[in-house]
Design a protein around this nucleic acid. Structure first.
Lengths: 137, 137
DNA sequence: TCCTAAATAATAATTATTCTTATTTATATC
DNA sequence: GATATAAATAAGAATAATTATTATTTAGGA
């Protein structure tokens, strides 16, 4: 709930309007699971039947640009979304239920000096661990 | 060239036929760049004009199942393919030209004990560094 | 050389996502 | 509170990557 109010402020400050569709999407995004646009759409239309999938996508992009949510691609070709955590971090993602556990460290910190001697200008990195969470294993 | 002969043996042993299309695809796959199915298709049809894109995809899947090639997804929604290296390893991928530099270490080795105490059964992991290679920066 | 299962080309279908357009609405201003 | 307007929306069409279908061709063993 705290998160959602935060988001509303961020949206307002960025000049976006607070529409019922956006509020429903923010509600749907709460929860640990990384959800696809379609899953989020289903949740949203259970409360707000006429919201189009296009609106979900459009707003997911906006929320992403504002760093409110984060996108990840697993093995299948769908994108999945979740509230960003405030800090930079990585996850262990359950390949069965899709839930994720945040890691309390970043491997880049550990290996920085190992790659500094290579002539490659690093701009970003990606680290994810896959497996089964305690419920699914 | 060594690699290609290897692949032919692997394909034969697995009961696959050695077709000119497959040979052309293997030729096209040599080179450091991670290439999309479409890029590979273009190379193939420059020598073998009637090969269909479908054939490229079908054979990429086969080569992947045999661990001959590896698939990666960058930011865009296309898959990219490259010969697997024999050992398990990770890459620094250039976001401009798509070339990749192999890392000589795996971060999982460094952090194993950090995650063993979490109740999560690890089956796989993904680690990639993005940036600009020496030619592109 | 011939037979047969596997592979192929061509094309249609599918899936996730994005675009177009006409309509509706949140909000700033009166 | 009414209203003007730019932004947001719904509906449906379009796109892009990939996969499925089917009739035809071919690699490789008998």
């Amino acid at each position: 709930m705290k998160k959602q109010n935060n988001c509303i402020d961020i949206l307002k400050k960025a000049g976006y309007k607070i529409t019922p569709q956006r509020l429903e999407l923010l509600k749907a995004l709460s929860g640990e699971k990384m959800q696809t646009a379609e899953e989020l759409h289903k949740i949203v239309i259970s409360n707000q039947p006429n919201v189009s999938l296009d609106t979900i996508y459009r707003n997911l992009h906006i929320l992403q640009q504002l760093n409110i949510i984060t996108e990840t691609k697993l093995g299948d070709s769908k994108s999945r979304f979740k509230f960003s955590s405030n800090e930079h971090n990585h996850h262990m993602v359950c390949i069965k239920c899709g839930c994720s556990v945040e890691l309390d460290f970043c491997p880049m910190e550990l290996i920085k000096d190992k790659i500094n001697n290579k002539k490659f200008k690093v701009t970003d990195h990606n680290f994810e661990i896959f497996g089964y969470c305690s419920n699914c294993s």
